[in-house]
C-alpha cells in the first residue's frame, strides 16, 4: 500500500466530506424542526452556485479587483440562497404544515423539479465553466502536492461555518428557540416563541450553509449545471441519515464518513459505481441502525 496515495485519498475524502457536511446541515436542521425532508435543498445549493457565477462574471467584466469580486459574489450567493429558502418554505411547505406527511413530501419533490427546470429554462442546460475563485497561496506552495489551496480553503471554511453554527445554536436567542421548537412545537409556541419565524430562520440558515458549499465546490470542480444539486443533495441526505438525522454533529460526522468511504472505494476498487455505492451504504445503514450513528431512536407515541 502506497502511503502517499492513501494520504491523497484521505484528504480527498475530507474535502468531499466537508462539502457534504455544508449541505447536510441544512437537511438535518430542517428535519429536526419540522420533520420534513426538504428535497429542494440540493436545488438551493445549485442556485447558490449559479448566482455566485453570474454575479462574479458581471463584476469581473465591470473591472472590479479579484478580492472584491470574491466577497461580493459570495455574499450575493448567500443572500439569494437564503431568500430562495425562505420563499420555498412559505410557498410549498407552510400551507401543508398540518397536512399528512406524504403531502409535504410530494410538494417538496415538486419544488425540486420546479427549481431545476426554472434554472434550466432561464439559463442553460450546458455545463458552465466556473472560475476558480481561490488563488494559489504562495505560503502553501510546499504542501500543495498533498492538498491544494482550494481544498485547504474548503476545509477551513467548513470548520469556521461549523463553529459559527454551533455558537448560533448553543448561545443565541434564536438558537435556543430553534432547539425548543424542535423538541415540542406546541409547548414552544405556548411559551411565546413565534414558531413560524423560527422555521423560516432555520430555512435561511440552512440555505446559507448550502450556498457556501455550492460556491466552494463549484470553484473547486470548475463547472456547474442545473442538475448538480440533485445528486449532491441526495448524498448529503445520505450523510445526514448516516449521522442521525436531526443531529447537527451527527450530520458532520456522517458527511466525513461518507466522504472517506466514497474516496477510498473509488480510489481502490472502481469509480464506475461511485453513486451506486452511496445508495447501498444508505440502505445498509437504515437496515442495521435506522437512527444513525449519533441519533436517538425515537419511540413511537400512540
Amino acid at each position: 500500500m502506497d502511503f502517499e496515495y492513501f494520504t491523497q485519498l484521505f484528504l480527498g475524502g475530507l474535502t468531499r466530506g466537508s462539502i457534504y457536511a455544508l449541505i447536510a446541515l441544512g437537511y438535518t436542521m430542517v428535519y429536526g424542526i419540522i420533520e420534513l425532508i426538504n428535497f429542494a435543498h440540493g436545488e438551493i445549493y445549485m442556485i447558490g452556485a449559479f448566482t455566485g457565477l453570474i454575479i462574479s462574471s458581471v463584476l469581473t467584466m465591470m473591472g472590479m479587483p479579484t478580492l472584491a469580486v470574491i466577497v461580493l459574489a459570495g455574499m450575493a450567493a448567500i443572500i439569494y440562497s437564503c431568500s430562495y429558502g425562505y420563499t420555498i418554505e412559505k410557498i410549498a411547505y407552510k400551507p401543508l404544515r398540518n397536512a399528512p406527511r406524504l403531502s409535504a413530501l410530494i410538494s417538496a419533490i415538486g419544488m425540486s423539479l420546479f427549481l431545476q427546470n426554472y434554472v434550466l429554462l432561464a439559463q442553460t442546460s450546458d455545463f458552465l465553466p466556473f472560475p476558480s475563485l481561490v488563488p494559489n497561496f504562495a505560503f502553501w506552495e510546499p504542501y500543495s502536492h498533498i492538498i491544494s489551496s482550494a481544498e485547504l480553503m474548503i476545509l477551513l471554511t467548513t470548520l469556521i461555518v461549523m463553529i459559527l453554527l454551533t455558537l448560533l445554536i448553543k448561545f443565541t436567542k434564536i438558537g435556543k428557540a430553534m432547539r425548543a421548537t424542535s423538541q415540542d412545537k406546541v409547548m414552544a409556541s405556548l411559551l411565546g416563541i413565534n414558531v413560524d419565524q423560527v422555521i423560516s430562520a432555520t430555512f435561511v440558515v440552512g440555505s446559507a450553509t448550502a450556498a457556501i458549499g455550492g460556491i466552494l465546490i463549484a470553484s473547486h470542480i470548475g463547472q456547474i449545471n442545473f442538475y448538480m444539486g440533485f445528486i449532491a443533495g441526495i448524498k448529503a441526505f445520505v450523510a445526514a441519515v448516516l449521522g442521525g438525522i436531526g443531529s447537527i454533529p451527527g450530520a458532520v460526522l456522517g458527511s466525513f464518513v461518507l466522504g472517506w468511504t466514497e474516496s477510498f472505494f473509488t480510489g481502490y476498487i472502481s469509480s464506475d459505481y461511485e453513486d451506486v455505492f452511496a445508495f447501498i451504504f444508505l440502505v445498509v445503514i437504515l437496515i442495521f441502525r435506522p437512527s444513525g450513528i449519533l441519533g436517538r431512536s425515537q419511540a413511537q407515541k400512540v
Binding site: R101, I234, F237, A278, F279, V283
Partner: peptide, 25 residues
C-alpha cells in the same frame, strides 16, 4: 424487505436510490 421498518420519508429516498442503482448498473 429491507425498507419495511422505514417510515414514509426514508422510504422515498431509499426507493429513489434503488431506482438509481438499477439504472446505473
Amino acid at each position: 424487505y429491507p425498507v419495511l421498518r422505514l417510515r414514509g420519508d426514508y422510504l422515498a429516498i431509499v426507493t429513489l436510490g434503488f431506482g438509481e442503482i438499477i439504472r446505473l448498473v
